[in-house]
Design a binder for these strands. Structure first.
Length: 401
DNA sequence: AACTTGTGCAACCGCTTCCAA
DNA sequence: ATTGGAAGCGGTTGCACAAGT
């Protein structure tokens, strides 16, 4: 545990990477792929531990990284994703092509939290600060609303509590009331159902942003299926549940009813049996792709999602059932950027539409020859990477690149 | 100009999870 | 089922720089 085993074997360099080290690492991975990280430093001729090499690659040298400031859309997206995912930076980063978890984490801690507070929003609860303040004054109670309040009182402090330390049921309050004839209790990450059916993330993630929006108070959620369903989101009971049930990396694509459109009328699939039947029926109908149909402006009006989120919705996209997809890991992505298949294509489409001001990822991805570029990575120049940091390096290392 | 304080960010640390033996 | 190495993740630290005094 703890320090990487390779760190014990020899005296290894620490601290900032020099341009020479970067070049060695870049050249090595460009030619050979990273393979086993622990062997990279030795093979690349670096006095670093594999862990450090991995980090340097992922956070800095990777050719598909975006450079430069975050766009407003990206910031909005991070805020909204944070409202749903908490400090799961890697999962947030998975939704922002070209951005790293470290980068997003730094942005959040240094900038976005501040901005939210300035806007009167508590960055932890994503609730209005005034509400949190009010909650703070309320005495503890067994009443659910007051439980939320007590949480809020902790959140007011500038010392941020990690989300995992907070009862999720309180952190993600969702009270969607309809004239309910049935209740579906869904895990926040869809691990369990009230009716003992097992719900997977794809079953329920479509509701995440709706209740996040409820927190912002911008919309009322009305799931207008004729079943008059009320939804209650329960937290994963344990941290391990939480881990097991983490949203897939392509969450947004499964989140929104692009391939999962709620049929607002006469949908026999949404039955009193709950989500699982609904999914099964739709899978049968759609050959593995779930398709529900939204009512008019369901996404735009009812769900109240913001522009930055809307762009992830491609109503025409046919996306395989997300619940059957594993989390997208960068390592997998590096090994085979095409592993995502349709989902990736969709993601690329939408990300391009989002980030029109930044260079598309396709110069990295579209070349078929790069399908497994862990072994045959694309060529790129260190100078491309360094453009942002010339000044820093010239100061740090007393040289100009 | 010298010093102090604040900020952003790269990198590290410690832990968990995964997986093959 | 157990174990140990590797990978991954999130929190934290430390440094460089900018801004303020």
């Amino acid at each position: 545990m703890g320090r990487h085993s390779c760190c014990y074997k020899q005296k290894l360099r620490k601290g900032l990477w020099s341009p020479e080290e970067d070049e060695k690492l870049l050249n090595y991975i460009t030619k050979h792929g990273h393979g086993c990280w622990s062997s990279v430093p030795k093979l690349a001729g670096l006095q670093r531990c594999g862990k450090s090499c991995r980090l340097r690659w992922i956070n800095y040298l990777r050719p598909d990284l975006k450079r430069g400031a975050f766009s407003q859309q990206e910031e909005n997206m991070i805020i909204e994703l944070h409202a749903v995912l908490g400090n799961r930076w890697s999962q947030i980063a998975a939704q922002l092509p070209g951005r790293t978890d470290n980068e997003i984490k730094n942005l959040w801690n240094s900038c976005l939290k501040k901005k939210l507070r300035q806007r009167g929003i508590d960055p932890n609860t994503h609730k209005p600060l005034s509400e949190v303040e009010n909650d703070k004054d309320m005495p503890p109670s067994t009443d659910k609303s007051n439980q939320k309040a007590s949480v809020g009182s902790n959140e007011v402090s500038l010392v941020d509590q990690p989300p995992k330390q907070m009862p999720s049921s309180e952190r993600y309050p969702l009270e969607v009331s309809t004239s309910s004839t049935q209740e579906l209790f869904l895990d926040r990450f869809g691990t369990t159902c009230h009716d003992n059916n097992t719900c997977r993330p794809s079953d329920v993630v479509g509701s995440y942003f709706s209740f996040q929006q409820l927190n912002y108070g911008t919309t009322n959620m009305s799931l207008s299926a004729n079943t008059n369903t009320s939804l209650c989101f329960l937290p994963p009971s344990t941290s391990s549940d939480l881990n097991k049930s983490t949203i897939t990396s392509s969450m947004l694509h499964s989140v929104f009813p692009t391939h999962v459109k709620l049929q607002s009328n006469n949908n026999p699939s949404i039955s009193s049996d709950g989500v699982q039947n609904w999914e099964a029926n739709n899978r049968n109908k759609n050959n593995g792709s779930m398709q529900l149909q939204s009512g008019t402006n369901f996404l735009d009006n009812t769900w109240g999602i913001s522009e930055s989120m809307k762009v992830n919705i491609n109503k025409d996209a046919q996306i395989p059932l997300q619940a059957e997809q594993e989390d997208l890991k960068w390592s997998e992505y590096l090994n085979n950027p095409f592993i995502l298949g349709n989902t990736t294509q969709s993601q690329i489409q939408t990300s391009q539409s989002i980030y029109t001001e930044v260079k598309p990822e396709t110069d990295f991805i579209t070349d078929e020859s790069c399908a497994s570029w862990n072994h045959h990575p694309p060529a790129f120049q260190l100078s491309d990477i360094y453009s942002k940091d010339l000044q820093r390096f010239s100061v740090t290392y007393g040289q100009t690149l």
